[in-house]
């Protein structure tokens, strides 16, 4: 099997584990059913092919008994699978919500907004395309969408849930071991549905709390001349119309919050790395990287783009 980034069959949490158990149960049962029924088909063709004449249908009685037995067995197997399904469904839904982390997930064409819920508004953390969760604690995701229907899906952790405008629904998940799990939009949402990925970073509790604290801080001041120039470019061009960098006047709400974009591993919804070259490529011509995405091309000089990239990747 080739190495794949995400898989239903490699569960990292209780929900995905229950579902994976159900998968293997159904896989083996249906495989057995397939083998038996297809073998019967071949046997019937072989037997019928050697017959000199068809059996008169008055002699169908024993055959009727066999068919009835087959149908009865089918019903028994189906009800067995139904029972297993109901049991798994309960187990998947039964995760306790105590000490849960609550995250509001909002879908956008074509990126993910994550807001960590806190009673005190100033303590809320808003980030994009990278969801941090503590290992071993249940997480409640309250999902909705601002534009079209998307679907939140991390195969290694839990089944998917649609993000539907006008409707908020909640889904629970939990990671049992640390790691980075890839997720991707699973409901066709337009031109860049293919590049609407995100990452779930599961880390130990203490590390998670440190991350959360760091995310609450305002953006750091630029440390180099280039980054400083980059901030000026950012604040004096169209960037501010869509993006927020807390601690600066930039407060746009259309695109992802960039306050700590430098801490995120990827940009453009999992498409490019957060490295100066990739960021510059994205800023210069987003329509080449992701045709149909909402980010317009910019008309900046190469020097300005370099400086801007320098500024952004250092927003730790």
């Amino acid at each position: 099997m080739t190495a794949v980034l995400q898989s239903v069959l490699d569960p990292a949490g209780p929900q995905a584990a229950h579902i994976s158990w159900l998968w293997w149960l159904m896989f083996w049962v249906t495989t057995a059913v397939f083998l038996v029924v297809f073998a019967l088909t071949l046997a019937a063709v072989w037997r019928g092919g050697r017959a000199q004449a068809a059996i008169a249908d008055t002699a169908d009685k024993p055959l009727a008994a066999a068919v009835s037995f087959g149908v009865a067995l089918t019903v028994v197997i189906l009800f067995g699978l139904l029972g297993a399904t109901m049991w798994t469904h309960r187990a998947v839904l039964a995760l306790g919500a105590e000490s849960a982390v609550t995250v509001n997930v909002t879908g956008h064409q074509f990126w993910w907004e994550f807001e960590y819920d806190e009673a005190v508004p100033s303590q809320r953390v808003t980030t994009a395309n990278e969801l941090h969760i503590p290992v071993g604690r249940p997480v409640v995701l309250k999902v909705t969408s601002r534009d079209v229907i998307h679907s939140f899906w991390v195969p290694n952790l839990q089944g998917k849930r649609d993000l539907i405008p006008g409707i908020m629904s909640a889904i629970w998940l939990q990671a049992d071991r640390p790691g980075v799990y890839r997720g991707q939009c699973a409901e066709f949402c337009g031109k860049q549905h293919a590049h609407m990925a995100f990452e779930v970073v599961a880390e130990p509790d203490a590390q998670f709390e440190r991350w959360l604290d760091a995310q609450r801080q305002l953006a750091s001041a630029p440390q180099s001349a280039a980054a400083s120039h980059g901030r000026d470019v950012f604040l004096t061009t169209q960037c501010v119309l869509c993006h927020t960098v807390r601690g600066t006047p930039a407060a746009g709400k259309v695109g992802p919050d960039l306050t700590h974009v430098g801490t995120r591993g990827k940009i453009a919804s999992g498409t490019l790395q957060t490295k100066p070259d990739d960021v510059a490529q994205w800023i210069r011509d987003p329509q080449h990287v992701k045709p149909g995405s909402q980010m317009p091309p910019t008309r900046l000089t190469d020097a300005d783009v370099q400086a801007l990239s320098e500024y952004l990747v250092n927003l730790k």
Binding site: L40, A44, G48
Partner: peptide, 15 residues
């Protein structure tokens, strides 16, 4: 499915 199989089983099948 079972009725189709039974038909072939008790018939004179031509492939």
């Amino acid at each position: 499915f079972f009725c189709w199989i039974a038909t072939m089983w008790s018939g004179k099948v031509e492939l």
